[in-house]
Write a protein that binds this DNA or RNA. Structure first.
Ligand SMILES: [Mn+2]
Ligand SMILES: [Mn+2]
Ligand SMILES: [Zn+2]
Ligand SMILES: [Zn+2]
Lengths: 140, 140
DNA sequence: TGGGAAGTTTAGAATCATTATAAACTTCTT
DNA sequence: AAGAAGTTTATAATGATTCTAAACTTCCCA
């Protein structure tokens, strides 16, 4: 159902965004999009690349994540203050944030109904609505 | 309607939290709570203190903001990645985040109706629900 | 098809918000 | 008044992220 589709999409989006399909970008795209949705930090992706014998500098990981975000392939999520997460799921949805582990978990858009929203302050346009449900692991 | 109330509250909360009412804490509390609700960064509060001839180190500003947060006098808000905001309004409410200026604007709880929420993942408890509406200034 | 322009990667340095350290100072208690 | 406990502070350290500028690749077309 989602076999080699992501890759064609990546190539197309790269072309659209005027980004050359370099070895590094393609390898990172593979890691990012090959296996379902993920919420990953730059550092974690860099380590994953190393583990997969993909040689990429951390600077390139940052550059690529930001370029992919700008190209609409990723979405950046800030919940933690200490690090930025990149979400491979760019469709409309929300998140649980596990404050202890630092893990993000998707909440499908349909699962949260925000039935009333104030109008954007005049002179502004809504760029995005983020709902973050912060949860803590129960002790006991 | 809210004249010298905040101060009594601060003193009481400090006592409750076993925090001594030092010159620095009281001066910062004054700056924070004396004039309506605010969303302020550590750096900004430090500068404000300097401008008001209150001598406090930046380390103390950070310590105090965190202690006040723990004591329930403040709430920390992370939206930006580059800095943490502290909100003097600890009641249930939400925010517009002006992405260009970095300004936070309150949205009263009643103005957003989240009529459906998924259950917290098993073994976890909801600590807080944050709704952040990111807006950008219109060009034109 | 060769060569240069433009784009990309990278090691390493720089930035910058925040946190840690540990010594000097205050406050509290008796 | 005096010691214990808590607090402040200058300063150093941390750590994620960004910058720099040189080396490397990819594109494009003469
Ligand atoms: Mn970023
Ligand atoms: Mn903090
Ligand atoms: Zn997600
Ligand atoms: Zn607020």
């Amino acid at each position: 159902m989602e076999t080699s589709r992501p890759f064609a999409r990546v190539l197309e989006q790269l072309r659209k965004a005027d980004l050359r399909p370099t070895r590094q970008r393609l390898a990172l795209a593979k890691l990012l999009f090959e296996n379902g949705y993920r919420h990953i930090t730059a550092e974690a992706l860099h380590e994953e690349a190393a583990a997969a014998d993909v040689r990429v500098s951390l600077a390139t990981v940052y550059n690529t994540l930001h370029q992919f975000t700008e190209a609409g392939l990723l979405r950046e999520i800030v919940v933690d203050g200490t690090r930025s997460y990149f979400d491979t799921n760019t469709s409309d949805h929300h998140h649980f944030f596990h404050e202890v582990s630092g893990r993000l978990e998707d909440i499908a858009a349909e699962q949260i109904v925000v039935s009333e929203l104030p109008p954007a302050p005049s002179g502004t346009t809504v760029a995005r609505v983020d709902v973050i449900i912060r949860v803590t692991e129960d002790t006991q």
